[in-house]
Write a protein that binds this DNA or RNA. Structure first.
Length: 145
RNA sequence: CCGACCGUGCCGAACAAUCGCGCGAUAUGUUGCCGAAAGGUAUUAUCGUGAGGAAAGUCCGGGCUUCACAGGGCAGGAUAACGGAUAACGUCCGCCGGAGGCGACUCCCGGGAAAGUGCAACAGAAAUAAACCGCCGCUUUAUGCGGUAAGGAUGGAAAGGCGAGGUAAGAGCUCACCGACAGACAGGUAACUGCCUGUGCCAUGUAAACCCUAUCCGAAGCAACACCCCGCAGAUUUUGGUCUGCCCGGCCGAGCGAAAGCUCUAUGCGCGGUGGCAAUAAGGGGCAACCCCUUAUGAGCUGUUUGGUAACAAACAGCAAAGAUAGAUGAUUGUUCUCGACAGAACCCGGCUUACAGGACGAUCGGUUUU
RNA sequence: UGCGGCAUCGCCAAGCGGUAAGGCAACGGACUCUGACUCCGUCAUUACCUAGGUUCGAAUCCUAGUGCCGCAG
């Protein structure tokens, strides 16, 4: 399944200003509940709730080749997270690359994302083992698309 | 063999497994969506295909598009030996001149300073104009007058260079050689070269200062440009339309729920914030070509032959395939080697410039050794 | 992506090819019981983004690069 990316600047501004933030080794993750999730769900042909994801890679990290490589790695890591774990849907997620992300592998980013998801309580209902302890911290939700 | 030098229609790690992305084709599309239906479409599956030599810088030239445009001139800009190539160019090829190298070869913003104007600090007697010292002559013997550019000193630049004659001392004043300029002849399409004759040679540099000469140039750029859609409320009204308003994770309100919370709300408020996603929302075209055939188009690509020293041209044959739109080429694991540089298409071409690990091929030069 | 502009001392800045003004700040001194204001001096040999070139001579002219900024229905 494909994601609709965040394309508008005001959404990024909103997420930076109002969203909750977690800083990891290679990335910074901002999360905000999507107000338009239900509308998007109606428009979506499959009638699924989805997350809108924005990736931010600044010019500071390098030239175009380096930046597009980082973007691909971030995308791959997020995709892995979404397929392997059960993630809350209907959120605005912005992932910003830090300097060290240039030399990171997608598995490193994946561990970072797991950490961030735990901190931001993104996991949907109890997943087999690991997430049980995180479920203690997070408030359980029963919300299906 | 060693050391150089030049060039390229050259290459720019490879393989396997699992997962994943864009585009195209085919199938699927009953169960999702639109539709009265026909049908279309989401989806899914299979197959094919998917960054560069510089994709970069945006420095030139063109195509394409819109706007402007009777014609001419001025202003402004670009180029600069000569001949060719090209759609065009500031590019390329050949050649001339100059500079460098033993050589292969490399480098040169290489028109005009005798059309005119400007500038040339400091130093120096003097900077386009000459007498400070010196040398020589004369006399009224002194801060005198005249001659003189050979010597000194300054400078980036000081009146072609050097030798001999000549002279009071000197001076192209005279002569030889070299240089410069002009003319004739020969060669070359030409720049120019060679050779002969003549002219004592009225004059520095700077045109990447203004300028002059010759040639060329309308402007803006795919966020160009055209096409579809173009809402709701209020006011006005000739019913075509026109004008105004539309922001917000603030508050208030409504619905669901046991609660946490979730959902809805332009047309309520105006305490507060803000001048915002282009008031809002949403597209497809421009946009990417060689196939079954036909026609047309594209400065298209590859190969062969012919012509040309070459750039290149002509003829013939062959050729599916990057085309995104917050932006596709990837991720993980393993193996191998030479251990991987610079670097990511964004309307499309021709160049230039800049960056770059390593390798391949071809031509040439110098040295050494052997035959 | 396309188009355009700028770079001078710690900051703001002027600059007709001839040896880089000025102001603020800083430092030292004077004035004052002390501080501020004011006055004097220093900030001077590397303050002209970098590298080549033209020129006798370049902050200025030319070429290439670097960094920063702006604009686009």
């Amino acid at each position: 399944m494909k994601n609709i990316a965040i394309s508008e600047n005001h959404l990024y501004k909103k997420v930076y200003a109002k969203g909750s933030k977690t800083v990891c080794k290679h990335i910074v993750v901002y999360v905000l509940t999507d107000y338009h999730a239900s509308r998007l769900q109606r428009e979506n042909p499959l009638k699924k709730r989805i997350n809108r994801v924005g990736l931010t890679v600044s010019t500071r990290l390098g030239k175009a080749v380096v930046r597009s490589r980082v973007r691909r790695i971030l995308r791959a890591a997020y995709q892995k997270l979404e397929t392997e774990r059960n993630i809350k849907k209907g959120k605005l997620i912005v992932i910003t690359a830090r300097d060290s992300a240039v030399n990171a592998k997608s598995t490193d980013i994946y561990t970072d994302l797991l950490f961030a998801a735990k901190r931001l309580s993104l996991f949907d209902d109890a997943f087999p083992k690991k997430t049980t302890e995180s479920a203690r911290n997070a408030r359980t939700e029963n919300e299906n698309g």
